[in-house]
C-alpha cells in the first residue's frame, strides 16, 4: 500500500547542506499501525511530511496506492491527500473561527459540492464521538479531549486509507489518550493504515511496528505485536 524507497532529505544551510533524514526505506501494509519514535528534531516530522506528500525528498520515491507521490502534480497530490490521507495533529490544528461541525466539514468542502450531505456526515461523525451537544461550539469552547475528538472526526470525514498522526496523544489526559489509541486501532481493524509519530512508550508499544529515528538515521521497523491488541 505504501512503499518508501530509499528517501533522504537535505536542507541547504548557507554553503553547506544539512541532512535531516538519511536514506530510509520501508513499506506499510493495509491495516498496519506503525509508530515512529525518536527524540525531538530527529527527523520524525520530516519523514511524516514526506509520506503525506507535503515535502519532497531530496532523492528516493514514495509510492502510495501505486502512485509515486512526487511524480504527480501539486494539485493531484493535494487531491490525493484530500481523498485518501488523513492527518491528526498534537495541537489538533482546528480552525479557531469555525465551529466543531464546520471543522469536520472543512476537508469535504475543498472539492465536494453537496454541502448538505457534508454537514450531515460531519454531524454524524461528531455524534459518534459523543459530541452531539458540542456541534456549534468553537474550538476554544471545547476541552483538549473534545478538540482531539473533533480532529479525529475531521480526519475520518474523508474516509482515508492512510492516517498520519503527529503526537496525537501529546496534549491529552490518560482517558482521552486511551480513546484516541483505541480509535486508531479500530481504524486499523477497518483496514486503514496508520503511521504515527510519538514519544509515548505506551502508544508505541501498542503499534504493530516501531521505526526508530535518531539524528536522521532510521533503524529497521521492528515488529511489535499483532494488530488490534491495544
Amino acid at each position: 500500500m505504501l512503499r518508501i524507497e530509499s528517501i533522504h532529505k537535505d536542507y541547504p544551510r548557507g554553503r553547506s547542506v544539512v541532512r535531516a533524514l538519511h536514506p530510509t526505506s520501508m513499506t506499510a501494509s493495509k491495516g498496519e499501525l506503525i509508530a515512529i519514535v525518536g527524540p525531538s528534531g530527529s527527523g520524525k516530522s520530516t519523514l511524516l511530511s514526506m509520506i503525506g506528500g507535503m515535502l519532497s525528498p531530496t532523492s528516493g520515491r514514495i509510492v502510495f496506492e501505486g502512485k509515486s507521490l512526487y511524480e504527480i502534480s501539486v494539485t493531484q497530490r493535494s487531491r490525493l491527500r484530500n481523498d485518501q490521507i488523513g492527518f491528526l495533529f498534537q495541537s489538533f490544528n482546528l480552525v479557531p473561527y469555525l465551529t466543531a461541525v464546520e471543522n469536520v466539514q472543512l476537508p469535504m468542502t475543498f472539492y465536494g459540492s453537496d454541502r448538505v450531505s457534508q454537514r450531515n456526515e460531519a454531524r454524524r461523525l461528531l455524534e459518534e464521538f459523543g459530541l452531539a451537544g458540542r456541534l456549534d461550539h468553537k474550538p476554544t469552547e471545547l476541552s483538549a479531549g473534545q478538540q482531539q475528538r473533533v480532529a479525529l472526526a475531521r480526519t475520518l470525514a474523508i474516509r482515508p486509507n492512510l492516517i498520519l498522526a503527529d503526537e496525537p496523544t501529546g496534549n491529552l489526559d490518560p482517558e482521552s489518550r486511551d480513546m484516541v489509541i483505541r480509535t486508531l486501532h479500530d481504524l486499523c481493524d477497518e483496514g486503514r493504515t496508520t503511521i504515527l509519530v510519538t514519544h509515548d512508550e505506551t502508544v508505541s508499544a501498542s503499534a504493530h511496528r516501531v521505526l526508530r529515528i535518531r539524528e536522521g538515521h532510521t533503524s529497521a521497523a521492528s515488529p511489535n505485536r499483532s494488530c488490534g491488541a491495544a
Binding site: S78, D83, F89, S91, N93, V95, P107, F110
Partner: peptide
C-alpha cells in the same frame, strides 16, 4: 501560517 498549512495538509491546493 499553521492554519493555512493545516488547510493544505487537509487537501487545499496552493491556489485555493
Amino acid at each position: 501560517k499553521r492554519e493555512l498549512g493545516t488547510l493544505m495538509a487537509l487537501g487545499a491546493t496552493p491556489s485555493m
